[in-house]
Structure formats: C-alpha cells, structure tokens
Nucleic acid binder design. Sequence first.
DNA 1: TATTGTTATACTCTATAACTATA
DNA 2: TATAGTTATAGAGTATAACAATA
Lengths: 163, 163
Amino acid sequence: MTGNSHSRSKALALRRRAPTRRSARPIALDALDNHLGYFIRRLQVWIFQDFIRTLAPIDVSPAQFSVLVIVSANRGLSQTELAGTLGIERARLVRLLHRLQSRGLIARLRSSMDARRHELQLTPEGYALLGQARMLAMRHEKRLIEKLRPERHRVLLQALRGL
Amino acid sequence: MTGNSHSRSKALALRRRAPTRRSARPIALDALDNHLGYFIRRLQVWIFQDFIRTLAPIDVSPAQFSVLVIVSANRGLSQTELAGTLGIERARLVRLLHRLQSRGLIARLRSSMDARRHELQLTPEGYALLGQARMLAMRHEKRLIEKLRPERHRVLLQALRGL
DNA sequence: TATTGTTATACTCTATAACTATA
DNA sequence: TATAGTTATAGAGTATAACAATA
C-alpha cells in the first residue's frame, strides 16, 4: 500500500535508488511512543470504523448503540442521567434521542413526579432492533479480539473496566 | 471537567435527599461491559480533553502535536506519507498543515526529484514551539498516569505499543 | 434560583468525490 | 493512467451559551 509505485519500467526509472527515496525507511514515532493517548486514539478510530461498518445494515452508530443498551437496562432514566452515564452533552443527546424516537425505537414519557423529566424507555421495535444490534456488535468484538489477539484484548478490558 | 458551573453553594440545597431521586442507584452498563470499544472511547475522550486544556496556552491540538512530532523526527516526509503514518485523510492533512504553515511553524518545499511532492520540515519557530509542546504534553501524561495509576498506565502502553 | 430539556452556534473530525498538475 | 496535493461537501462529535417550562 505504501510504495509499490514501480510497476512500469519506463527506462528512465533507472536511476531510482529508492521509490521517491523514502517509503522504504521506517518512520520514527519519536515522542509519540511515550504517549498512551496516541495509541488509544489509533485503536479507538479502528474500533469505530469497524463498528460502524458492522452495524451499517441496521444503521446504528456506536453512540446510538450505547444509548439503546443503557436505556434498555435502566428503564425510566432521565436524559440528564443518561448523558452523565455516557459522558456526552445533554445538548447532543437531544438530537440523538430525536433520531431514535423518529425511528420509533424509544419513547420519552413525562415524569409524573417531576414534569421537567423525560423518562426514557425502549419501544417493542427498539427491543427488537437492539437484539440485532447486540448480535452484530458481538461480531465486531470478535474481529477486535482477532486483531488484538485474545490475550491482549483480555488485558486491555480488565485494565479499563471500572475506571 | 464535565460541568463545574455549580461552584457556589447557596445554602438552600439543604433538603436534597437524592437529587432527582435516581443518581444514587448505580446504573447498569449491561452489554457495554463486554465491549472494549466503550472503555477505550471513554478514556480517549478524557485524554483529548485533558491534552487540549493542557496545551491551550500554546494552542496546539492533539492532531497538530502529532504532526509536529512526526515531521520533526522525519524531515522531508511527504504529505501522503505523513497522512499514512498518522492514519488521517490526506484531505484533512491539507487544512491541518495550512494552519501550521500560516503560523510559521512548518515549511512545504517542492521536491526536486518529484514536483508533485511537498517535503515537510519544521521552521526554527516550529522547533521552538515543539519544545514547549513537549513539556506540556509530558505534564498531561503525568496527569494521565495519576488517573490510571502507574501500573495500569504501564500495562496499557505496553499492550498497545507496536500494534 | 436551580434544573430539565431544548435550540443555536462554531469548530473539529471523518468519509467521499472530484479536480489540477505532475509523473 | 496513476499519484500528490487540493477543494468541496455532508454528517457526526464537542464545547458553549442561552432560553422556556418547571421545581
């Protein structure tokens, strides 16, 4: 992918000591090699890409998946509580929920005890879709385990769980 | 970090048994607990936020920092090579570099061997700023080590390095 | 006054596609 | 034809601020 650009030998490509002179040399990470954030970010990007592709058939993003899972396991949660749990902004959650609601996956019920609160719950369609999402998400996780090797995956999960 | 806009305690917050009746109950993560991506994402968000705040005085983002470090350690790299190394889009790199160039931190030199290539290097100002950035980034990393505990930080870095 | 949900704004990031100039 | 750099666009994510209804 990097440097197989010498497919044609034009007769003037003779004096090429190295294709563009650089693609062979390994590139130094220097200071980044000591920054955990760099590696976390790289892995996180890979995970998001694979997750999105895997759940593309049902059009569920990582954020949407986490919302469906948390609401399913904690019926009646308010939006502020959900936002706090997932570490996202209340403002962003509004649009996220709006989408899910317009797809008929979640319901927002005014709380009888506090009219400001919206108690969240999944619709039957929401539960059905979540079932599919869980299966696809497991398929994604399997690919991730393969990529990392099971031992490394286990170590990472154990280190990060409950932070 | 999230929302410390309630710094003042007004003395009327007395009768609060549990704010909104629910924040006491632990919220179940359910299926998310088995997905490494969820925890990776949470940590990655924390890291970005802390990094951005720490380097705010010199206005250097995580992406900009990685560009400065890689270019500094690999003078003459092309934009395509840099994009490949960092795993970002060539298209995005253009704007990133444009900013850094307009701040006088990097130079793009047309390659004498291939007029399509831009060979990248830091300006003296770029090296100077990178020095400051490195110091601040280390300060960030120290905070990260504290948050994770040194042992966990070490385990994570070792597991992810060279992936 | 404070909180819940909401709207609005601005900027970054990601994913694409297409264009230009070179090769 | 293919590649390097560029431009443009659309959507998601993040950070804020402010507002109406309710407490």
